[in-house]
Every structure is written in structure tokens, then in C-alpha cells.
Amino acid sequence: MTTILDTTTGQPATGTTPPGVRRPRIRLRAEPGRSRHSTRTKALVISGLVLFTVYSLAPVWWLIVAATKSRGELYTSNGLWFTDINLWNNLKDLFTYQDGIFLRWMGNTLFYGVVGTAGMTLVCVACGYGLAMYEFRGRGFLMGCIIGSFLVPGALLTIPSFLLFTDLGMVDTATAMIVPSFFNAFSVYLAKVYAEGAIPPELLEAARIDGAGEYRIFFQIGARLMSTGAATIFLLGFVGMWNSFFGPLVFLRSSEKWTVMLGLYSWLKVKTDSSVDLVSLVVVGSIISLIPMVILMLSMQRYWRTGVTLGSLK
């Protein structure tokens, strides 16, 4: 499969691809094939997609409606339609609660997410590149370690990791969130298969003949060819960091350092054992917390248009 991959993955496709065309270079041949889609097939395709989209999005509708309600209405009115529009008050409450701690959580998460994921992408792409492009002793063993680590239940590592972090003086520091996230086995696996798909060995060979050093080849050729894959790794990593909850719960102490998900969780749990009830804040906070993700996804769209990205996975 890797042999038939388009190797010009580095660049996004030209912006104005007419609808109904798979790829510019085969425009003439593809079009007659496409046009054979009967209207019935087309209608079926679209209604199928609409059905799946409704399934995906309908649950979010409740969240949006709930965000506009006051606490009393939230519990007693119909959840699927608006009653009193209390959105501004909810937003104001959200951003002023406890001196605006929610913004602080958003900031923390962004910081941990960007720094942690950027570092992770660099470390893991380099590692995947090394594993894919070079033959060396122990390579199979290292690959085995990576695959094997997928199988380890996280529950097993919690307490030992805590003891380790304590001895390293990392508990309750940003380091505990950022540094361990650099070493993501799944990302290495992805990077390896990307590298195999995106970098023709002949290209490296040619560069070597030109006298380029191995590190220079990586930064000037390898990294560039892998940029789409790296972007995907970054995206998946960032989604993971943004949603991370268990790590912060165990390794962070003071609420000023929490991530947004941990904060929302604590607000959600407040109600079960006290008279305070912050569910309306949780609902609004959930929506606000999605904004950075949506922005990221939108900005990643152009990388996906090239078609290859995750396609080379095997």
C-alpha cells in the first residue's frame, strides 16, 4: 500500500478543487465515473450522512439549550427547548466565580497542552523516523516495547508513578503534566508508519550521496515530508491533553494548577454532598471549553484535504 502513496504530502492541495473531483491530476478520467452516480444513490448517500450527523450532534443540542438556563429552570423545565435566556448571567457567573478561576484553568490547560504536545510531537516524530528509516540492533525489541505498552492498564501505574514523581519532586508542578506527556508510545507508532509511507528511502540515499549529515537530512527532508503526519499526531495529542483528567487529578494539588476538565469535574461533584450546586456553570463551562478544540479542528482541515494523513496507517 505504501508504494502507491502520493509522496507530495507536504503541501496541501490547491484550494479550489471543483466538487465531484477526487484529485486534480485525474480530473478528466474521474469525472465520467462520478457522473454515473444515479440521483437515487446520491440521495441515499446524503440522507445517510444527514442521519449520522443528527446522531452525532443531537446530544450536543441539550448542552447548548441548557447553557442558556438558570439553575432553577435547568432542573424543572423541558431540556430540549429554551425558556428564559440566562446565557449572559451564566457566562458572567462562569468567568467571575472564585475570582475567575475558570479562565485560569483554561490558561493552564492551553499551556500544558501546547508545550506538552509540541514536545511530544518532536520527540515522537524523531523516534518514529529513526525506527522507520534505519536498521539497527534492538529495533525490533524497541518496537515490541511500544506495542506492548498499549496493553498496560493505566490503573497499574498510578501509585508507582506517584511514588516516582514524589521522589523526582514533580508532584504539584506543571512539569508533572508536561514532561511525561512527551513520551507517548502511540504517537511513536503513528510517526513510524507515517515515515514509512511518506519518505522514500531513495531520497535519503540521494541526500547522503550529496554529503548531507543524518541530522540535517532529518530536519531538512524527513521532518518536512512528515509534516502532515506530525500535524495529525499533534492534533490527537492535543485532544488527549485537553481532555486529560486522571493525571491532573492524581498529580496536581492546588486548584490554581488544575486543568479545565478537572475543574469542571470538581464543580460537577460539588452538588452530591453539599448545598452548593454549580451544574449551570459546568454546562456553560463545557461549551466554552470546546472552543479551542473547534478552532484547532478547523485549522487542521487543510492538512486533511490532501487525503493521505491517516490513510497510510496499517
Binding site: 498510578t158 501509585i159 506517584f162 511514588l163 514524589t166 521522589d167 508532584v171 504539584d172 487529578l249 492524581v250 494539588r253 492546588s254 486548584s255 488544575w258 478537572l262 469535574y265 470538581s266 461533584k269 460539588v270 452530591t272 454532598d273
Partner: peptide, 23 residues
């Protein structure tokens, strides 16, 4: 005062801290 996320995480964190003997 150091606020914890909820009661179960308080339980887990105390167990961890006592096991580590620090903090």
C-alpha cells in the same frame, strides 16, 4: 486550605501521599 476535586480523589490522593511519605 488545599481544595481537592471531590471525595474519591481526596481518598486516592491521601493514600498516595501517605505511601510516598512526602507532602
Amino acid at each position: 486550605y488545599v481544595k481537592q476535586a471531590d471525595d474519591t480523589s481526596t481518598a486516592a490522593n491521601v493514600r498516595n501521599a501517605v505511601a510516598a511519605g512526602k507532602g
